[in-house]
């Protein structure tokens, strides 16, 4: 089964991917702040300690053609388990071990029905709002540079 068909079949996985995306995109500082505000201190065991490595990032020839390897990027990842055995995965571009540990904890708590709402409202939504605001600010600034050139008529 390919990843995309899995995604279509399972809204649960799609929701988790979206949460992971918000966590990966968050700055270490923003994530640390929301984590602190959450005020939870769950017990956990480290399954795979935070590890720095690389992922080879691929592009496509012409944008939509055959894949090729563009360059590597630093990635940090870690896996933890809560006391009830729920495993949390944290991974993000960059080399911030603290950030992926917190992301893994959030991922694990999100999977626990009793914590999901809290994680959504206290962590994911605030981070997503910050990210959307930043993106919209970029869009607004770029929109101000939208140009309309006039073609001169020859001989004018």
């Amino acid at each position: 089964m390919t990843a995309s068909s899995l995604k279509e079949q399972s809204p649960e996985i799609a929701a988790r991917q979206s949460a992971m995306g918000i966590l990966a995109k968050a700055s270490a500082q923003d994530l640390a702040e929301t984590w602190k505000n959450l005020g939870l201190e769950p017990n956990y065991t480290v399954i795979r300690p935070a590890e720095i490595g690389f992922v080879m990032v691929r592009g496509r020839a012409g944008g939509t053609g055959a894949p090729f390897n563009m360059c590597e990027a630093t990635v940090t990842r870690c896996v933890i388990a809560l006391d009830d055995g729920t495993t949390g995965f944290g991974q993000a571009l960059g080399r911030d071990k603290q950030k992926v540990l917190q992301a893994a904890l959030v991922d694990a708590l999100w999977q626990q029905p009793e914590h999901r709402d809290l994680i959504e409202t206290k962590v994911l939504q605030p981070l997503a709002t910050t990210q959307e605001q930043a993106e919209n600010e970029t869009r607004a600034e770029v929109a101000a540079t939208k140009v309309d050139f006039f073609t001169m008529v020859r001989g004018e």
Binding site: A3, I13, V55, F89, Q91, L93
Partner: peptide, 17 residues
């Protein structure tokens, strides 16, 4: 940037570049 995680069996987002 999305990366397929064997252990999870689905693609995870790694952030933006």
């Amino acid at each position: 940037v999305d990366f397929f995680m064997e252990e999870l069996g689905f693609e995870v987002p790694l952030g933006t570049m």
